[in-house]
Design a protein around this nucleic acid. Structure first.
Length: 109
DNA sequence: CGATTGACTGACC
DNA sequence: AGGTCAGCCAATC
């Protein structure tokens, strides 16, 4: 059933793809769903390699502060903020997302 | 195979 | 309140 050939990265990608539009998730959140909360670093690394940016909305993944990492720059710095706004996500600051309202509450988990 | 890195988090000062 | 240190895990060189 589960393919052992899949790495943690693939699991993380799968979780990121599951993030509903209009919501954001934290690295620790994604890591927790992927398998272990301690994979927060791995999640960051996984998105860093980001083999499929078109299918992996990495811009919906933010750090625990609700802010997008500077290293994102996978499309142009603050560009991710614009994408999140387009999804209906509100910002408390130019770089901080309103986690209280838009953080993924994963209803099926 | 061993050492280093990394888009994080939490705790401590 | 804000900055710094250490810990965690997997992938890469």
């Amino acid at each position: 059933m589960e393919k052992d050939n899949e790495t943690v990265f693939d699991k993380i990608y799968n979780v990121v793809k599951k993030i509903p539009k209009g919501y954001v998730a934290t690295y620790g959140q994604v890591a927790s769903i992927a398998g272990n909360k301690r994979w927060a670093r791995v999640v960051g690394y996984a998105l860093h390699v980001n083999p499929d940016p078109e299918h992996i909305p990495c811009y919906r993944v933010v750090n625990r502060e609700g802010r997008i990492s500077e290293a994102f720059a996978f499309g142009g710095g603050n560009r991710q903020v614009e994408l999140l706004k387009a999804d209906g996500v509100e910002f408390v600051d130019d770089e901080h997302v309103d986690m209280e309202k838009y953080q993924w509450d994963m209803p099926w988990y």
